[in-house]
Amino acid sequence: MSALLALDLDEATAADEPQPGAKDVLHGSILYLEGITVSFDGFRALDDLSLYIERGELRCIIGPNGAGKSTMMDVITGKTRPDLGSAIFDRNTDLLNLSEPEIAAAGIGRKFQKPTVFEQLPVFVNLELAMRANKGVWATLFARLSGEQRDRIDAVLHTIGLIENRDLHAGALSHGQKQWLEIGMLLMQEPRLMLVDEPVAGMTHQETERTAELLVSLAGERSVVVVEHDMEFVRSIARRVTVLHEGRVLAEGSMDTVQNDPKVIEVYLGA
Protein backbone atom coordinates (compact mmCIF):
# COMPACT_ATOMS: atom_id res chain seq x y z
CA MET A 1 0.00 0.00 0.00
CA SER A 2 2.60 2.48 1.05
CA ALA A 3 4.80 1.58 -1.88
CA LEU A 4 1.92 2.19 -4.22
CA LEU A 5 1.26 5.51 -2.64
CA ALA A 6 4.89 6.49 -2.92
CA LEU A 7 4.83 5.64 -6.59
CA ASP A 8 1.83 7.86 -7.11
CA LEU A 9 3.55 10.67 -5.36
CA ASP A 10 6.60 10.17 -7.46
CA GLU A 11 4.59 10.71 -10.57
CA ALA A 12 2.74 13.64 -9.14
CA THR A 13 5.86 15.49 -8.19
CA ALA A 14 7.59 14.59 -11.41
CA ALA A 15 4.65 15.93 -13.35
CA ASP A 16 4.67 19.53 -12.19
CA GLU A 17 8.31 19.61 -11.18
CA PRO A 18 8.45 23.01 -9.55
CA GLN A 19 11.82 22.71 -7.87
CA PRO A 20 15.05 21.05 -8.72
CA GLY A 21 14.99 18.83 -5.64
CA ALA A 22 11.71 17.12 -6.47
CA LYS A 23 13.02 13.64 -5.75
CA ASP A 24 14.24 14.92 -2.47
CA VAL A 25 10.72 16.01 -1.58
CA LEU A 26 9.67 12.44 -1.44
CA HIS A 27 12.47 11.27 0.78
CA GLY A 28 13.29 14.29 2.81
CA SER A 29 9.90 15.89 3.31
CA ILE A 30 7.89 15.41 6.48
CA LEU A 31 4.82 17.17 5.15
CA TYR A 32 3.61 17.15 1.63
CA LEU A 33 0.61 19.24 0.56
CA GLU A 34 -0.42 19.05 -3.04
CA GLY A 35 -3.22 20.91 -4.82
CA ILE A 36 -5.21 21.63 -1.67
CA THR A 37 -8.41 23.53 -2.36
CA VAL A 38 -10.85 24.61 0.33
CA SER A 39 -13.93 26.62 -0.40
CA PHE A 40 -16.52 28.08 1.90
CA ASP A 41 -19.75 28.71 0.03
CA GLY A 42 -17.90 29.29 -3.21
CA PHE A 43 -15.19 31.44 -1.64
CA ARG A 44 -11.81 29.78 -2.06
CA ALA A 45 -9.86 30.11 1.16
CA LEU A 46 -7.19 27.80 -0.26
CA ASP A 47 -6.74 27.58 -3.99
CA ASP A 48 -4.64 24.72 -5.34
CA LEU A 49 -2.08 25.18 -2.60
CA SER A 50 1.06 23.08 -2.63
CA LEU A 51 3.64 23.11 0.11
CA TYR A 52 6.47 20.84 1.14
CA ILE A 53 8.13 20.93 4.52
CA GLU A 54 11.40 19.15 4.93
CA ARG A 55 12.47 17.07 7.85
CA GLY A 56 13.99 19.24 10.56
CA GLU A 57 13.12 22.42 8.73
CA LEU A 58 11.96 25.64 10.38
CA ARG A 59 9.59 27.26 7.95
CA CYS A 60 7.93 30.62 8.32
CA ILE A 61 4.69 31.38 6.58
CA ILE A 62 3.61 34.94 6.16
CA GLY A 63 0.82 36.59 4.30
CA PRO A 64 -1.82 39.26 4.76
CA ASN A 65 -4.94 38.67 6.85
CA GLY A 66 -7.26 36.17 5.27
CA ALA A 67 -4.52 34.67 3.12
CA GLY A 68 -5.50 31.21 4.31
CA LYS A 69 -2.67 30.49 6.73
CA SER A 70 -4.85 29.24 9.55
CA THR A 71 -7.07 27.38 7.13
CA MET A 72 -4.00 25.55 5.89
CA MET A 73 -3.27 24.45 9.45
CA ASP A 74 -6.88 23.39 9.82
CA VAL A 75 -6.43 21.15 6.81
CA ILE A 76 -3.22 19.62 8.12
CA THR A 77 -4.70 18.91 11.55
CA GLY A 78 -7.94 17.50 10.20
CA LYS A 79 -10.28 20.25 11.34
CA THR A 80 -11.20 21.20 7.81
CA ARG A 81 -11.50 18.72 5.00
CA PRO A 82 -10.31 20.05 1.65
CA ASP A 83 -12.42 19.71 -1.47
CA LEU A 84 -9.43 18.64 -3.51
CA GLY A 85 -5.81 17.76 -3.07
CA SER A 86 -3.68 15.45 -0.97
CA ALA A 87 -1.86 15.84 2.31
CA ILE A 88 0.79 13.29 3.21
CA PHE A 89 2.66 13.25 6.48
CA ASP A 90 5.96 11.46 6.90
CA ARG A 91 5.87 9.84 3.49
CA ASN A 92 3.01 7.43 3.94
CA THR A 93 0.41 8.79 6.33
CA ASP A 94 -2.52 10.19 4.40
CA LEU A 95 -3.78 12.95 6.67
CA LEU A 96 -7.05 13.30 4.84
CA ASN A 97 -8.18 9.91 6.07
CA LEU A 98 -7.44 10.59 9.71
CA SER A 99 -9.41 12.27 12.45
CA GLU A 100 -7.95 15.06 14.56
CA PRO A 101 -6.85 12.79 17.44
CA GLU A 102 -5.29 10.34 15.00
CA ILE A 103 -3.34 13.13 13.38
CA ALA A 104 -2.19 14.31 16.77
CA ALA A 105 -1.16 10.76 17.64
CA ALA A 106 0.71 10.50 14.37
CA GLY A 107 2.96 13.31 15.60
CA ILE A 108 1.57 16.65 14.54
CA GLY A 109 1.10 19.28 17.23
CA ARG A 110 -0.58 22.61 16.88
CA LYS A 111 -0.73 25.89 18.66
CA PHE A 112 -3.84 27.88 17.88
CA GLN A 113 -3.89 31.47 16.74
CA LYS A 114 -6.18 32.37 19.63
CA PRO A 115 -4.49 30.83 22.64
CA THR A 116 -6.65 27.95 23.84
CA VAL A 117 -5.71 26.36 27.10
CA PHE A 118 -7.88 24.57 29.62
CA GLU A 119 -8.84 27.54 31.72
CA GLN A 120 -10.40 25.65 34.61
CA LEU A 121 -7.42 23.37 35.09
CA PRO A 122 -4.11 24.19 36.78
CA VAL A 123 -1.14 24.96 34.59
CA PHE A 124 0.52 21.72 35.65
CA VAL A 125 -2.49 19.64 34.64
CA ASN A 126 -2.63 21.43 31.30
CA LEU A 127 0.84 20.15 30.61
CA GLU A 128 0.09 16.72 32.02
CA LEU A 129 -2.80 16.31 29.62
CA ALA A 130 -0.67 17.40 26.69
CA MET A 131 2.06 14.92 27.56
CA ARG A 132 2.79 12.19 25.09
CA ALA A 133 1.12 9.09 26.50
CA ASN A 134 -1.58 6.60 25.78
CA LYS A 135 -4.66 8.75 25.43
CA GLY A 136 -7.33 6.07 25.44
CA VAL A 137 -10.23 6.09 27.87
CA TRP A 138 -9.04 3.19 30.06
CA ALA A 139 -5.44 4.30 30.03
CA THR A 140 -6.32 7.76 31.29
CA LEU A 141 -8.70 6.38 33.90
CA PHE A 142 -5.89 4.48 35.58
CA ALA A 143 -2.95 6.71 34.62
CA ARG A 144 -0.45 7.66 37.30
CA LEU A 145 2.33 10.18 36.89
CA SER A 146 5.79 8.67 37.22
CA GLY A 147 8.55 10.67 38.86
CA GLU A 148 10.25 10.95 35.53
CA GLN A 149 7.14 12.42 33.93
CA ARG A 150 6.78 14.85 36.80
CA ASP A 151 10.34 16.04 36.25
CA ARG A 152 9.71 16.44 32.59
CA ILE A 153 6.68 18.62 33.25
CA ASP A 154 8.67 20.70 35.70
CA ALA A 155 11.41 21.11 33.15
CA VAL A 156 8.96 22.40 30.61
CA LEU A 157 7.47 24.69 33.25
CA HIS A 158 10.95 26.14 33.67
CA THR A 159 11.40 26.52 29.94
CA ILE A 160 8.18 28.45 29.54
CA GLY A 161 8.74 30.45 32.70
CA LEU A 162 5.61 29.33 34.49
CA ILE A 163 7.15 27.30 37.31
CA GLU A 164 5.86 29.83 39.81
CA ASN A 165 2.34 29.42 38.46
CA ARG A 166 2.24 25.65 38.27
CA ASP A 167 -0.86 25.33 40.49
CA LEU A 168 -2.66 28.40 39.22
CA HIS A 169 -5.70 27.90 37.05
CA ALA A 170 -4.77 28.58 33.46
CA GLY A 171 -7.66 31.00 33.13
CA ALA A 172 -5.86 33.35 35.52
CA LEU A 173 -2.82 33.71 33.26
CA SER A 174 -2.13 36.75 31.14
CA HIS A 175 -2.44 36.57 27.38
CA GLY A 176 1.30 36.20 26.91
CA GLN A 177 1.51 33.52 29.59
CA LYS A 178 -1.23 31.60 27.89
CA GLN A 179 0.79 31.76 24.69
CA TRP A 180 3.72 30.29 26.58
CA LEU A 181 1.56 27.64 28.15
CA GLU A 182 0.36 26.59 24.75
CA ILE A 183 3.90 26.38 23.52
CA GLY A 184 4.66 24.31 26.61
CA MET A 185 1.81 21.98 25.80
CA LEU A 186 3.23 21.64 22.33
CA LEU A 187 6.58 20.69 23.82
CA MET A 188 4.97 18.08 26.07
CA GLN A 189 3.33 16.52 23.05
CA GLU A 190 6.77 15.92 21.53
CA PRO A 191 5.42 16.10 18.01
CA ARG A 192 7.54 15.54 14.93
CA LEU A 193 5.86 18.43 13.22
CA MET A 194 4.85 21.55 15.07
CA LEU A 195 2.41 24.02 13.63
CA VAL A 196 2.64 27.31 15.47
CA ASP A 197 0.07 29.96 14.64
CA GLU A 198 1.07 33.50 15.66
CA PRO A 199 3.09 32.55 18.74
CA VAL A 200 4.33 35.98 19.74
CA ALA A 201 1.16 38.02 19.59
CA GLY A 202 0.78 39.65 23.00
CA MET A 203 4.34 38.96 24.10
CA THR A 204 6.88 41.50 25.28
CA HIS A 205 10.05 42.11 23.35
CA GLN A 206 12.15 39.86 25.56
CA GLU A 207 9.58 37.11 25.48
CA THR A 208 9.53 37.32 21.70
CA GLU A 209 13.27 36.84 21.65
CA ARG A 210 13.06 33.87 23.94
CA THR A 211 10.38 32.33 21.77
CA ALA A 212 12.60 32.81 18.76
CA GLU A 213 15.47 31.05 20.51
CA LEU A 214 13.21 28.23 21.60
CA LEU A 215 11.81 27.63 18.14
CA VAL A 216 15.22 27.73 16.54
CA SER A 217 16.55 25.24 19.07
CA LEU A 218 13.66 22.90 18.41
CA ALA A 219 14.15 22.82 14.66
CA GLY A 220 16.51 20.16 13.44
CA GLU A 221 15.20 17.53 15.77
CA ARG A 222 11.64 18.43 14.83
CA SER A 223 10.10 20.24 11.92
CA VAL A 224 8.46 23.53 12.75
CA VAL A 225 6.03 25.64 10.75
CA VAL A 226 5.50 29.13 12.12
CA VAL A 227 2.84 31.56 11.00
CA GLU A 228 3.57 35.13 12.06
CA HIS A 229 2.78 38.69 11.16
CA ASP A 230 5.71 40.08 13.14
CA MET A 231 8.33 40.55 10.38
CA GLU A 232 11.17 41.23 12.72
CA PHE A 233 10.51 37.98 14.50
CA VAL A 234 10.28 36.12 11.20
CA ARG A 235 13.55 37.64 10.04
CA SER A 236 15.23 36.57 13.25
CA ILE A 237 14.34 32.90 12.91
CA ALA A 238 13.62 32.18 9.29
CA ARG A 239 15.78 30.36 6.90
CA ARG A 240 13.04 29.75 4.41
CA VAL A 241 9.88 31.82 4.10
CA THR A 242 6.68 31.11 2.21
CA VAL A 243 4.34 33.93 1.32
CA LEU A 244 0.68 33.02 1.07
CA HIS A 245 -1.82 35.20 -0.70
CA GLU A 246 -5.45 34.48 -1.49
CA GLY A 247 -4.96 30.83 -0.80
CA ARG A 248 -1.93 30.36 -3.05
CA VAL A 249 1.80 30.39 -2.61
CA LEU A 250 2.94 33.77 -3.86
CA ALA A 251 6.64 33.40 -3.28
CA GLU A 252 9.08 31.17 -1.47
CA GLY A 253 12.71 31.56 -0.56
CA SER A 254 14.94 33.29 1.92
CA MET A 255 13.64 36.32 3.75
CA ASP A 256 15.62 38.67 1.55
CA THR A 257 14.47 37.04 -1.66
CA VAL A 258 10.81 37.27 -0.80
CA GLN A 259 11.10 40.76 0.56
CA ASN A 260 12.45 41.96 -2.72
CA ASP A 261 9.95 40.06 -4.80
CA PRO A 262 7.82 42.68 -6.59
CA LYS A 263 4.68 40.57 -6.24
CA VAL A 264 5.13 40.39 -2.49
CA ILE A 265 5.78 44.09 -2.24
CA GLU A 266 2.64 44.77 -4.18
CA VAL A 267 0.54 42.56 -1.93
CA TYR A 268 1.95 44.01 1.25
CA LEU A 269 2.13 47.65 0.30
CA GLY A 270 -1.04 47.58 -1.76
CA ALA A 271 -1.35 48.38 -5.43
Binding site: P101, F118, E119, L129, A130, G136, Q189
Partner: peptide, 30 residues
Amino acid sequence: ICASRYGRVVVAIRDAEDRARFLGYRVENF
Protein backbone atom coordinates in the same frame (compact mmCIF):
# COMPACT_ATOMS: atom_id res chain seq x y z
CA ILE B 1 -13.37 9.31 38.19
CA CYS B 2 -13.08 13.08 38.50
CA ALA B 3 -9.74 12.92 40.24
CA SER B 4 -8.22 10.61 37.64
CA ARG B 5 -6.59 11.87 34.51
CA TYR B 6 -9.74 10.75 32.72
CA GLY B 7 -11.69 13.22 34.84
CA ARG B 8 -9.24 15.97 33.99
CA VAL B 9 -9.60 15.23 30.30
CA VAL B 10 -13.34 15.46 30.68
CA VAL B 11 -13.02 18.90 32.27
CA ALA B 12 -10.60 19.85 29.51
CA ILE B 13 -13.19 18.82 26.95
CA ARG B 14 -15.75 21.00 28.68
CA ASP B 15 -13.39 23.99 28.52
CA ALA B 16 -11.95 23.58 25.03
CA GLU B 17 -13.18 20.60 23.10
CA ASP B 18 -11.13 21.27 19.99
CA ARG B 19 -7.94 21.67 21.95
CA ALA B 20 -8.45 18.30 23.60
CA ARG B 21 -8.99 16.75 20.22
CA PHE B 22 -5.78 18.24 18.86
CA LEU B 23 -3.92 16.85 21.83
CA GLY B 24 -4.95 13.41 20.64
CA TYR B 25 -7.96 12.63 22.83
CA ARG B 26 -10.93 10.98 21.20
CA VAL B 27 -13.41 13.41 22.64
CA GLU B 28 -16.47 11.40 21.65
CA ASN B 29 -15.29 8.34 23.58
CA PHE B 30 -14.58 10.35 26.69
